[in-house]
Every structure is written in structure tokens, then in C-alpha cells.
């Protein structure tokens, strides 16, 4: 789940890394939306402090504890940045 290898791109969308895909799945479930791109912003999609608690809990469950500090989410809430932070922490 944490490899940085790009997986097969969907038509018309840039390839997501597997970490990005995992985060996109969480966002789809949290926000009830179908399309999530690497450039999407957690708060622009409607995230708030309580959604953040849910998101971080699910990230820790799928990856590892402390893999994504809340401060990172608040500082740069783009999907690609969050995935990169997780990959760095997991490396």
C-alpha cells in the first residue's frame, strides 16, 4: 500500500501513487464524493477539525501511528503533499 510506484492512470487523470490512492479512498468516504485528485485540498473539500480527527485516525490505522502529524495536514492539506509526507515518514 505504501509503494511510491505509480499505478495505472485513470483516463484523463494523472497517475496517483498507491499512497495517494489510499488517501483518496479515505477522502471519498469522508466527503461522499467520487472524484479526488492529487491537487485536491482537504479543507476546500469541506474538511474541518472533526473530519481531520477522523481522517488522521484512518491514516494511522492504515499506515502507522504518528505517520502524519496534524500540523502537516493544517499546513499543506493537498492530497499529494500528505501522501509525500506519509511516504517520507514510512521510508
Amino acid at each position: 500500500m505504501t509503494s511510491q510506484e505509480p499505478t495505472a492512470p485513470e483516463p484523463g487523470a494523472p497517475a496517483l501513487t498507491s499512497t495517494e490512492k489510499a488517501l483518496a479512498d479515505i477522502w471519498r468516504s469522508l466527503f461522499g464524493i467520487d472524484e479526488v485528485s492529487a491537487d485536491d485540498n482537504f479543507f476546500a473539500l469541506g474538511g474541518n477539525s472533526l473530519t481531520a480527527i477522523r481522517f488522521l485516525a484512518r491514516v494511522e490505522e492504515q499506515f502507522a501511528e504518528d505517520v502524519l502529524p496534524p500540523e502537516t495536514l493544517y499546513e499543506d492539506p493537498r492530497l499529494a503533499s500528505l501522501a509525500q509526507a506519509i511516504d517520507t515518514a514510512m521510508a
Binding site: S49, I53, L56, D66
Partner: peptide, 8 residues
Amino acid sequence: PHDFVRLS
């Protein structure tokens, strides 16, 4: 002791 609530 943290600014943000994290369930873990």
C-alpha cells in the same frame, strides 16, 4: 498536551 486532537 497537543494543539490538535488525535485519537491515538
